[in-house]
């Protein structure tokens, strides 16, 4: 381990310790903002594990997140199963589902993948609503637990830490090296012996896994779940924008996008709620035209370092 690694680990531990103290200092509104931010840290960072190196824009987060929330709600409400069991089930379901989507679309060009994920959450929402109304019978789904917002926050913090650790491990592994090569030139990657399809599908499955876990953990926050609430296309876009805003060529990049964006988003939602969509659009254009490497890229440029 190099001195730099040791330093990074220490910084990481300090950050986690500070983050863990948030519920002890804040409560009410600010805790709930922190919780939202923590949710997006886990989602955007795990999203960037896949999309950073491949440049494939996945809009499937909302679908996987919805699978997590919906399965937890159905299992607890209709079948009296435990929260933890349903969280595990939803993670497995989402991972397998991501694998299937990946196998069907990732061997083709990136455009097909974006289009396929674009309407995915909406399609699943339609199907789930239909199943609920016609097959299962329409009943409200209640997620009743003893979890407080602080508990949910700490669980999400744990997930975020797991994402960071996994990300760091992947970056040092053959898989991480393979992804960097794929991101540079997929044809070369194939011809040096990388099974590019398998590598991409594996990483896409990780994002599905984490998004479902986050969806499951968030479910108790709402207590009453319906498909329209959890299968949210908007969530997919927010995850994308925050990761891009932060910058995806560093593991901690999305973090720098999530925190400012969540704060601005909250402020806009309170004061000028009709402006949110417009703001989302402006944020996309800002990134494309002015911040192609995100906040991280900007910082590195200001420090005079080379941007990759």
């Amino acid at each position: 381990m190099t001195p730099e690694d040791t330093r990074n680990i220490l910084i990481g531990i300090v950050c986690v310790a500070i983050a863990a103290c948030v519920p002890l200092v804040f409560n009410g509104y600010w805790l709930s903002v922190a919780l939202t931010a923590m949710m997006y840290i886990a989602l955007s960072t795990s999203w960037a594990l896949f999309s950073g190196p491949t440049h494939y824009i996945s809009l499937a987060s909302g679908a996987f997140f919805g699978i997590g929330g919906y399965l937890v709600a159905t299992g607890m409400s209709d079948y009296n199963l435990s929260f933890w069991l349903m969280m595990a089930v939803s993670a497995v379901v989402a991972t397998v589902f991501a694998g299937l989507i990946g196998m069907a679309t990732l061997r083709l060009s990136g455009v097909y993948f974006v289009i396929f994920t674009l309407g995915l959450a909406e399609m699943i929402r339609n199907m789930v609503s239909w199943l609920q109304n016609n097959v299962l019978g329409s009943r409200g789904l209640y997620v009743l637990t003893d979890f407080t917002e602080a508990h949910i926050y700490w669980m999400l913090l744990t997930v975020s830490v797991a994402v960071f650790i996994l990300g760091a491990l992947i970056a040092r592994s053959r898989l991480g090296f393979a992804m960097r090569i794929i991101g540079n030139d997929e044809t070369v990657a194939r011809h040096v012996g990388i099974n590019t399809a398998r590598a991409k599908v594996l990483l896409f499955m990780t994002t599905g896994f984490f998004a479902a876990i986050v969806g499951a953990i968030i479910a108790p926050r709402y207590s009453y779940i319906e498909p329209n609430l959890v299968f949210s296309p908007e969530l997919s876009f927010l995850v994308v924008i925050m990761a891009l805003l932060g910058g995806m060529h560093r593991l901690w990049g999305p973090l720098l996008g999530v925190i400012p964006f969540t704060l601005i988003w909250e402020a806009i939602s309170i004061w000028i709620p009709n402006f949110t969509t417009l703001f989302l659009g402006l944020a996309f254009l800002t990134i494309v035209y002015f911040l192609p490497n995100g906040v991280v890229g900007l910082l590195e440029k200001l420090r005079g370092g080379a941007t990759p």
Binding site: I57, L244, N274, T277, L280, G281, L282, F284
Partner: peptide
Amino acid sequence: LATFGMSFILIG
């Protein structure tokens, strides 16, 4: 990404 941005602005 740019057309996503335009799409949201138009919706707004």
